[in-house]
């Protein structure tokens, strides 16, 4: 791993929440929201993190920003350890990682004019003076497709799509190396989604910023990401380059997920892989593989221990945590010999 090339390196990240006990006699339980996740993102790259509600992808994003304190694990941003630092040092590091939130309506302070919201970001980091800050803000507004007159408007005067642009402007204004996009288009209409996605790509082309794109929308992730990671119940279960993941999904969950995505084409009405049951409660995690309760390929060993995250298909970039997939891989390889 060349740490000068990786904008983000996450190693063995864990985030546990203590569960609220109903009575003092109940055993202390933890909710393992994120359990032993490792990933890395290169400069100028978009890493798509997908999974359904409760898989921990948003929590992971927030831990990376230290909006939640990770329970253990390492986070390196541009080669510097982000986990242990505090105070002024942490504030300086924050210039490198920013976030765009899902909710366009609540992510902006309703009592502040948007120009002031953006200027404040600069003021917090003592960048420039009153005059230069104003110019920087005007520049950024135009970069995200807004007009300079919008400087003095309040958030409620803008539409959802425009507010996301403002959120993006706020994330960009400190010139970060990595932006965590937490479901940035999920709350928007389809045609506005397209605008924002195009904008994100254009900005990436211009500034070589990296994105951690968190979403549950497979079509969007396929369009925008270079690599994709699939999470389930706090674990990273598969990771590959986008083409490879969509063409050769190996983990049963990934396969079920992809089969459930409906293409907008009435001629392609297909049966999707039905998963039995529901995602188990995080208080009641299965021993062994986290997907074992619903997996159509579940075997005895799946119930006994957790599979490791290993490479597959002969590619270092394609990793899966699944005994079945590993077996399938060995069969394929032995057939080819």
């Amino acid at each position: 791993m060349q740490s000068n090339e990786n904008v983000l390196e996450v190693q063995g990240l864990q985030k546990y929440f203590p569960a609220v006990r109903r009575s003092p006699s109940q055993k202390k339980q933890v909710i393992k929201a994120v359990d032993n996740v490792s990933l890395s993102i290169k400069k100028g790259e978009t890493y798509g993190l997908v999974g359904e509600s409760g898989c921990g992808k948003s929590t992971l994003g927030r831990c990376i920003l230290r909006l939640e304190e990770p329970s253990s694990g390492a986070i390196n941003i541009c080669g510097l350890d982000f986990t242990k630092i505090k105070g002024d040092e942490m504030r300086k590091m924050r210039r490198n990682v920013q976030i765009v939130f899902q909710d366009p309506f609540l992510s902006l302070d309703p009592k502040q004019r948007i120009g002031n919201i953006l200027e404040e970001a600069l003021a917090i980091h003592n960048i420039g003076n009153a005059q230069s800050r104003f110019e920087i803000v005007i520049n950024i507004l135009e970069k995200v497709g807004l007009r300079s007159e919008h400087f003095y408007r309040y958030p409620h005067e803008f539409s959802g799509g425009q507010r996301q642009r403002i959120g993006l402007a706020r994330a960009l204004i400190l010139e970060p190396k990595l932006i965590i996009c937490d479901e940035p288009v999920s709350a928007l209409d389809v045609s506005v989604q397209a605008q924002i996605i195009n904008l994100l790509e254009k900005i990436q082309k211009d500034t070589r910023v990296s994105y951690l794109f968190i979403t549950h929308n497979m079509s969007v992730v396929k369009h925008i990401s270079k690599r994709v990671g699939v999470m389930y119940l706090g674990h990273l279960v598969e990771e590959a380059e986008t083409e490879e993941l969509f063409n050769n999904p190996r983990h049963p969950y990934t396969r079920a997920l992809l089969s459930a995505v409906a293409p907008p084409n009435p001629h392609l009405r297909k049966k999707h892989i039905a998963l039995k049951g529901e995602m188990p409660s995080p208080l009641d995690m299965p021993t062994g593989c986290v997907f074992s309760t619903r997996c159509p390929r579940c075997q005895a060993e799946c119930l006994a221990k957790r599979p490791e995250f290993l490479q597959i298909n002969g590619l270092a970039s394609h990793k899966v945590a699944c005994f079945y997939a590993a077996k399938e891989d060995r069969n394929v390889n032995s057939n080819n010999d």
Binding site: L67, R94, R95, Q98, F101, E120, I124, R170
Partner: peptide, 8 residues
């Protein structure tokens, strides 16, 4: 949260 992320 956004303000905290900015380092306020």
């Amino acid at each position: 949260e956004a303000m905290r992320a900015l380092g306020a």
